[in-house]
Amino acid sequence: MTRDGKVFAGTHLIVDLWDAERLDDIEHVRRTLVEAVEVAGATLLHIHLHHFTPNGGVSGVAVLAESHISIHTWPERGYAALDIFMCGDARPHAAIPVLERAFSPGGVRCDELLRGETAD
């Protein structure tokens, strides 16, 4: 990929959500990941989620032709950690509003890494 004169493999977003809701609802998490993939213009290959007890946390990954979206939730803390890594024509930043609508976080942090960026 090339953007702003930089050559790299893909965009990797590290996303933290605080004071978020519905982090223990595995079907809601699944639907949210599917919507995030669609809105980003990526291709879903497989999705696998695991529901933990007793806290109800959810961990999982949506495997994409363009890479992946992973999620790990701590509902007892209202916290979720996500990785959104995409290459090609996919638009990983477009997934952020989907996450905001789905989980209604009080706070969001998104850091961007350009994976595989060539050193000059």
Rank of each mutant, 00 (worst) to 15 (best):
H28A: 05
I26G: 00
A65S: 11
H72A: 02
L64M: 13
V58S: 06
V34K: 15
N55L: 13
H48R: 14
L45P: 03
G60T: 12
A36W: 06
T53Y: 04
H51M: 07
L49W: 03
H46A: 15
R30Q: 10
V58K: 08
G56C: 05
H68M: 06
E66M: 13
V29A: 12
A40D: 01
L49D: 00
S59I: 12
I69G: 04
D25E: 05
V34R: 15
H48N: 12
N55Y: 06
I47H: 05
V29L: 06
T53W: 10
H50E: 15
E27F: 04
T32A: 07
L33S: 10
I71C: 06
T53F: 04
G41A: 03
E27V: 01
L44G: 00
I26K: 10
H28M: 07
V29S: 08
A40L: 05
A36N: 15
R31K: 12
A36F: 02
V63L: 15
G60Q: 08
H28N: 12
T73A: 11
I47K: 10
L49Y: 10
G56F: 05
T73E: 09
V58A: 08
V61S: 08
E27L: 04
S70C: 03
N55V: 00
I26Y: 03
A65P: 00
D25M: 10
G41K: 14
